[in-house]
């Protein structure tokens, strides 16, 4: 693991090639003052190609959001220039306010204040169902 350029911060590794920029946007890394790097299409033994994001600041991360976007990610925390911890992400069992139900007959379509909750029903196929109406979430 190459943590060059990060003294106290995080290195998000094993991002599926091409997704780096979306994760950069999701985490709103453009709003940070510290040094941030996106490295794209790095050769990877496991996946062929991968993206890496390095952030020289210890920012809070929502592992549910990240795990949903890409369950293969590993998050490395760096402290004083050394690797302090490593977290392997996975698809979360429950997603709260990460995605929205698109079923127009669902209570979440009319009631603003309630949380949008999805439950993982098939890890292999990455299928989430709305906790209210049971309709499967489709990205597109």
């Amino acid at each position: 693991m190459n943590i060059d350029g990060v003294n106290n911060g995080i290195v998000i590794d094993h991002i599926e090639a091409g997704k780096g920029i979306r994760i950069y946007e999701q985490l709103q890394l453009n709003k940070l003052d510290c040094s941030v790097a996106i490295i794209q299409n790095v050769a990877s033994e496991k996946y062929g190609k991968k993206d890496i994001i390095k952030v020289d600041q210890d920012i809070p991360l929502d592992f549910d959001v990240l795990g949903y976007m890409d369950p293969h990610i590993t998050v490395n925390h760096v402290k004083d220039g050394k690797l302090a911890s490593k977290v392997h992400l996975e698809l979360p069992e429950t997603l709260t306010n990460v995605i929205r139900c698109k079923n127009p007959r669902c209570i979440t379509s009319v009631e603003q204040e309630i949380k949008h909750i999805f439950k993982l029903v098939d890890r292999e196929k990455k299928i989430y169902r709305c906790a209210y109406c049971d309709v499967e979430h489709k990205e597109y």
């Binding site: 079923n103 007959r105 669902c106 209570i107 979440t108 379509s109 009319v110 009631e111 309630i114 709305c130 906790a131 209210y132 109406c133 049971d134 309709v135």
Partner: peptide, 13 residues
């Protein structure tokens, strides 16, 4: 009874 699906789950919370 409610016309929207999942309304009683929201209520139960």
């Amino acid at each position: 009874r409610h016309p929207k699906e999942g309304a009683p789950i929201a209520a139960a919370m």
